[in-house]
Design a binder for these strands. Structure first.
Lengths: 367, 367
DNA sequence: CTGTTAGCGCCTTCAT
DNA sequence: ATGAAGGCGCTAACAG
C-alpha cells in the first residue's frame, strides 16, 4: 500500500561517514566503541550520527559478526504469575549478557512448530518449556544447529534441562497433610499435562508409602476448571478430606467455591497448592503451598543458554533447584497473619526441599 | 573461549543448493514459497534442506528485504497481571501479523535509553509504556526513523498514543463511594508516577465537584508500600472512610493489613482498586475495582504499530478504549458471590465508561 | 590512527 | 522454470 515503507530509511554508516568526513571503518569503530580512534574523529562521527539520527541496522551487524545476540524463549502461555516470573528472570539475565530476548507464546498458535522454526531463524539459541508438546520435535530438529535448553522437562542427549524440585516437595507436602490426620487425599491436576506435574503426582503417591491412592483428578489448570470441580464436590460426587492441587490457581478457585458453598477450610477439607502466587497469602485461610525459585530458573536458563552459545558443551542430565514448603492455614496449621511476603511462615530451620543437584539423565529425571 | 562458536554453523543457502543440484535462487524460492518452481525441484530442495537441517539466517534475509519483521515492546516491569496481559495481547496480534516480538523490561536496567536504542536496531518499530520516563526522549530520538507508539501516555506530534479510559471511570467510581455515604475519601497512589494514574486522580477530584479533596497519598504501587501505609492507618495517623487506590495490588495489600488489624471492610472503611486482577475476586469482601481491556490494548498496539511500519501516517491524538466498573463488596455494596470472572457483577445496562473515541491531542489527553 | 576492501547469507531483477 | 549477478549495511582484516 505504501511505496516506500519508511520516509527516511536512509542514514547508513555511509551517510554518517560522509557527513563526518571519515571512512565507514571509523564510524564503525566509534559506534561500537572498539577503540583506536582519535578523539577528534570520534566527535565528528558522534555529531554526524546524531544529526542524521543514525540507527544502525542490527541485521547487517548480525550478518557480519555471524551472531544474532538474541535469546529465544518459548512459553506455553503467560496467564498467572509463574511464566511472568520466569520471563522476568530470563530477560534480566539475558540483558546483563547483552542479549535481546525474542518471545514466543505457544498458546493460540496454529502451527507452533513452524513459529519456533521461524524464531530459530533470528536467535542464537532458545529455551523452551518442557510442557510444550513440540519440545521434543523441535529440539531434535535443531539439534546440532542452535543450542536448545528445556525448563521443567526431561533432558535428552545433547539437550540440557533445568527445573525446580518437585517429587520430594510434593512428598513432604503430602506427608504434612497426612500428619494432620487427613486420610483421603486427592490429587487435583493432570500429570499428563506437564512433566513437572507428573513428578509432583509421583511424590504424592510416594508419600502414601504403599497405601492405595486414588487416581488424580485430571482437569486443566484454569480457574474455571477448579470451580466446576468444586461444584462436583459440593454436589457430593467427590469424597475427600484434602485436595492436593497441581497449582495455586486451581487450589484458590476450588477453595473459594467450596467456601461459598458452605464448606469450611481447613476444618471440613484441607486445600493446598503449588507456586505461592500473590493471592495465596491474601485469601483466608492463607493457602499452604510450595514456593519455586521461578525467577532464578529464568536466570539460570539464560545463563546456561549463553554458555552453550559461547561454545560450551551441553551439560548432561537435569539440574534441579530447591523448592520450599510454605505452611499457612489451608492445610490445617494454625493460621498466622502473613502479610509480609518475605517472611512467609516456613518451618523452622529453613526447611528446603532438595539441594542444587545434578542427576544423571534417566527415566526418572527428578530427585 | 571457544574458537568456533558453533560446531556446524554451515548449511547456508549455498550448501543446500549444491546438495540439491540447483541454484540458490531456486532454494530461495522454495524456502519462502514464492512459487514459480517445478515440483521436482521443490522436492529436491526440500530434501536437501532437511538433510542439512537448514535453518535460514534471519539477519541475512532482513538485510536483503530491508525489514526485521519484528516488533519491539518496552515494558516497565512484569509484576502483576497488567503487563502480562498487555504482552499477551501484543504478542498474539504480532504473531498473527507474522511479526516476532522483542521484549525489553526497563525495571532493573541501568541505562534504559541505551537498551532501547539497541532494541530499535533490530525491530521495525516499537511500543513503549507511557509511564517510562525515557519515553519522550527516545520517541523524539527515533522520530522519523522508526515508528513509535505509546500506551497509556500522552501523544506527541507524530507519535500515536492509545490507552484505556481513566478520568471518567475514576470519577464514577468515586461518585459511587460518595453515593454510599462516604465523605472522607483518600486517593492512594502517586499521580506523578504515571500519566494514567494522574488521569485517575483527576477523575477522583472531579467527582468531588468542587468540594475540597485531600492530597493524594504518594506511595509506590508495591504490596509492601500498601502494607506500611495500612500500618499508618492502624496507628491512627490517617483519617478516612474510603481509600481509592491506584491499582489492585495496593488496594489488596491495604485491605488485608487493615483487616488483620481489626478494621472492618467495608463497614469501617471502604477500599477500591483498579485493574480487576485475579485476587480481587478471591478476597472477602470482593474488591470493587475497574476493569481495563488490557489484552485488547496490547492487540491494538501491535495493530497500530504494524500500520505505521507499513507506511501509514501517524494518527493524531489519543485513542481511548472503554473501561468497566466492577462492583463487589469492598465499596459497601451488598457482597455477591463472584466466582465466575465472566459474569462479574457490573451495574445493569452494561455500564461502561467512555466509548472508543478519538480526541484531539491537547494538554488534557484523556476524555 | 585511518582508509580500503572483501565478504557475511539471502533476495531479486534480469536473462535465458 | 531456472540461473547469474548485484546489492542490502556492517565488520574485520589488512595496508598505509
Amino acid at each position: 500500500m505504501a511505496k516506500d515503507r519508511q520516509r527516511d530509511p536512509g542514514a547508513t554508516i555511509y551517510s554518517v561517514a560522509e557527513l563526518a568526513g571519515v571512512s565507514i571503518a571509523s564510524v564503525s569503530r566509534v559506534m561500537q566503541g572498539s577503540g583506536g580512534v582519535s578523539d577528534k574523529t570520534r566527535q565528528k562521527v558522534l555529531a554526524a550520527a546524531k544529526e542524521l539520527n543514525y540507527v544502525p541496522l542490527g541485521a547487517a551487524r548480525s550478518l557480519a559478526v555471524r551472531h544474532h545476540e538474541a535469546h529465544g524463549l518459548v512459553l506455553p502461555e503467560l496467564a498467572g504469575p509463574y511464566y511472568s516470573e520466569l520471563l522476568i528472570g530470563f530477560e534480566t539475565r539475558a540483558a546483563e549478557l547483552g542479549q535481546s530476548v525474542v518471545l514466543l507464546l505457544a498458546d493460540g498458535k496454529r502451527d507452533v512448530a513452524r513459529d519456533v522454526r521461524r524464531l530459530a531463524t533470528r536467535v542464537d539459541g532458545l529455551v523452551m518449556l518442557g510442557s510444550l508438546c513440540v519440545t521434543d520435535m523441535v529440539a531434535q530438529g535443531l539439534h546440532g544447529k542452535k543450542p536448545v535448553l528445556v525448563i521443567a522437562g526431561h533432558p535428552q542427549p545433547g539437550i540440557e534441562a533445568i527445573g525446580a524440585e518437585n517429587h520430594q516437595g510434593a512428598r513432604e507436602l503430602t506427608a504434612h497433610l497426612l500428619g494432620h490426620g487427613r486420610r483421603r487425599l486427592l490429587f487435583v491436576g493432570d500429570p499428563a499435562s506437564a512433566p513437572d506435574v507428573a513428578d509432583r503426582y509421583e511424590g504424592f503417591v510416594a508419600a502414601h508409602e504403599g497405601e492405595p491412592t486414588p487416581d488424580p483428578v485430571r482437569i486443566p489448570f484454569r480457574e474455571a476448571d477448579g470451580a466446576s470441580f468444586a461444584d462436583r464436590v459440593l454436589g457430593g460426587d467427590v469424597e475427600a478430606d484434602a485436595f492436593v492441587c497441581a497449582n495455586d490457581e486451581l487450589a484458590l478457585s476450588i477453595m473459594s467455591r467450596l467456601q461459598d458453598g458452605g464448606v469450611r477450610v481447613p476444618e471440613d477439607v484441607a486445600v493446598v497448592g503449588w507456586d505461592d502466587v500473590m493471592a495465596a497469602r491474601y485469601v483466608r485461610p492463607g493457602l499452604t503451598t510450595v514456593r519455586q525459585p521461578v525467577k532464578e530458573l529464568g536466570r539460570l536458563a539464560a545463563d546456561r543458554l549463553h554458555e552453550r552459545i559461547a561454545g560450551a558443551p551441553a551439560r548432561e542430565g537435569l539440574e534441579i533447584l530447591p523448592t520450599q514448603l510454605v505452611l499457612r492455614g489451608s492445610c490445617g496449621c494454625a493460621a498466622a497473619p502473613d502479610a509480609k511476603p518475605a517472611t512467609a511462615s516456613a518451618k523452622p530451620s529453613g526447611r528446603t526441599t532438595g539441594r542444587p543437584v545434578r542427576k544423571a539423565s534417566s527415566k526418572r529425571t527428578t530427585a
